[in-house]
Design a protein around this nucleic acid. Structure first.
Length: 214
DNA sequence: CTCCCGATAT
DNA sequence: ATATCAGGAG
């Protein structure tokens, strides 16, 4: 898609979803890190439900590290992948305590060294906890970017690279949230609601549908 | 590429 | 019944 059209798409999405922001509830970088690890293949609603209870007692590295893998796993069970997530949260917490003086690191390089933390999770933490411009490519951003044609790629890394090239740095974090909101409300995985999509005129996916019907 | 995995929408 | 949900590791 042409750069001027990409800017127009972002403008329309910003007007459509002015309230778009991080959907995960957190009160510290550490809470956001844990919530984001939990959010893999799980709805943010479920994560918030689990963490509201979890963070009452266990909201710091020092407190979480007192739990066994089985104990933590049981508390986060309903988020799915609970054995991996429990092991990763405890592993990441251990590293934060040993190597980072109990503070969540604020660089991509250090974040992705933590177990269970890849580029997507690292970008969420950088953007929402530390105010660093970043575009986390999750399932929604990946799907919506490819459909619209604002950044096409076979992997999240490729889509992230394209988005960073096509979007002004100071719009990265906001755009990331617009794309997620749009993916949830209109450009859904199963039955995208193109009839009510404000950016359909610019969308490659929609325009291809129109072509096929001719 | 496969595996991890429970909850919900369709 | 099955696809999908703020992915990451082996």
């Amino acid at each position: 898609m042409k750069k001027e059209n990409i800017e127009e798409v972002i403008k329309i999405l910003s007007e459509t979803y002015p309230e778009a922001k991080c959907a995960l509830n957190f009160n510290s970088p550490y809470e956001l890190l844990v919530s984001t690890i939990l959010s893999a293949q799980c709805t943010d609603v479920r994560v918030n439900q689990v963490t509201e209870e979890l963070y009452k007692e266990y909201n710091t590295p020092e407190k979480v590290i007192s739990l066994t893998e089985e104990e933590l796993g049981e508390k986060i069970r309903s988020c799915g992948f609970y054995k991996n997530k429990s092991k990763n949260i405890l592993g990441a917490t251990r590293t934060i305590l040993k190597e980072h003086n109990g503070e969540v690191p604020n660089t991509m390089e250090e974040l992705i060294k933590l177990p269970g933390v890849g580029r997507k999770t690292a970008n969420v933490v950088l953007s929402n906890a530390f105010g660093v411009p970043a575009i986390a490519v999750d399932t929604h951003v990946f799907r919506v970017s490819n459909r619209l044609g604002i950044s096409k790629g076979n992997t999240p890394d490729a889509v992230e690279k394209g988005l960073m090239e096509n979007i002004p740095r100071d719009m990265w974090s906001d755009t990331h949230h617009y794309l997620i909101w749009h993916g949830r409300q209109i450009c859904k995985a199963r039955r995208p609601n193109c009839d009510n999509c404000p950016v359909a005129p610019y969308c490659e996916f929609f325009n291809n549908l129109v072509e096929e019907k001719k």
